[in-house]
Design a protein around this nucleic acid. Structure first.
Lengths: 186, 186
DNA sequence: ATAATTAATGAACATTTTGTATTATAACAT
DNA sequence: ATGTTATAATACAAAATGTTCATTAATTAT
């Protein structure tokens, strides 16, 4: 891949993250991004269809980092999710999300766009909680239970990030786990 | 108040609700609202500062209906929230929200604006759940517990409305109550 | 090394949407 | 009947988006 493309793409993503540290996604204009990245207008649009696509790509970058499967494999070779400790997994995710907290604030603070990040996050969380749902045999439909867990967790993350991570990932995990009373956690 | 003002205001609100039945809040333009309401552009802006204020007023109208205090007083004269059955209260709220489900879909479906409705809803839900929080004496901070209950409930509503209310308010209340294991519910 | 390809620049432009301003007209209150 | 107020209709300014195109520079292939 052309070095120029790499550089431009990288500059745009860095500029975008810098801006997210300072202001809400909704209030960031394409003009600001290209000024910060020091690239031309048409260059931006040749890389990203719209501002929303830029956000999407940044989110996917973050999630690929946060939900890195390799970490699981490292700790256990024949790793099977059903035997995994969901509590550790949650703590692990929180630790990694914390690394991106500056960028996430600019998304969470905004009432209009906070949902976009969570929309992408859902896919990963559903995969994470699916094995748990099966073991819970609640009277409520699985559909509801999965939605409940995913929402409760992402709302917990939002609460945590907005409050500037006053608590450690372990503490937050305990709040969450204690509250929803997950079976098979230990 | 001038009859013309009343009519115009009513027409705008009706037009807005009609449009919300058909499409997302984000995709509705002021032009569409004034066409549907059959009012002039400057007339719209003399009634509502922006489209967001129109949404806010509609939300407040809905909440004043949904959380109507009089209903409580009717059922019990010396009514005190702390002795009230939170389960009935939740069911009551769901019944009333159901009446507005067509308008709510246009808000919930939209990833960018679903949060605006919930932002206003939060105030009412916090008031409703505050007495519960005090009785739960969780290890987690009250701050977290209240946020958890409010988010879990509003996410439940969202889940319910988007799925076209396949379940009755009583059923949904049971899903919710069972899941968060509220004390003092019966 | 040179030519061909590809990317970036910068400026102009069309479009959409928002919100304001103005004037004439019609409805209202007294 | 008269003065007041809301509305309509139109035009307008401003902001932001996304496109186009000619020029320049960097990269790759030969």
């Amino acid at each position: 891949m052309d070095r120029r493309q790499q550089k431009t793409r990288k500059n745009i993503l860095i500029a975008f993250r810098n801006l997210l540290n300072r202001k809400n996604f909704c209030n960031i204009t394409v003009q600001e991004i290209i000024d910060e990245a020091n690239v031309g207008r048409s260059t931006f649009y040749s890389h990203f269809e719209t501002k929303d696509f830029l956000l999407k790509e940044m989110c996917l970058d973050i999630f690929n980092h946060v939900f890195d499967k390799n970490l699981k494999k490292e700790s256990n070779h024949d790793f099977s999710l059903s035997e995994h400790n969901i509590k550790d997994e949650i703590t692990h995710v929180l630790y990694h999300l914390k690394e991106h907290s500056n960028n996430l604030k600019g998304l969470f603070y905004c009432n209009k766009c906070g949902n976009i990040f969570i929309k992408y996050l859902r896919d990963y969380l559903e995969e994470m909680f699916l094995p748990v749902v099966k073991k819970m045999n609640s009277k409520a439909p699985n559909d509801y239970v999965l939605n409940f867990l995913v929402c409760a967790f992402s709302d917990t993350v939002k609460w945590w990030i907005i409050r500037n991570e006053e608590y450690t990932p372990e503490e937050v995990t305990n709040f969450f786990i204690e509250f929803i009373n997950l079976p098979f956690c230990y």
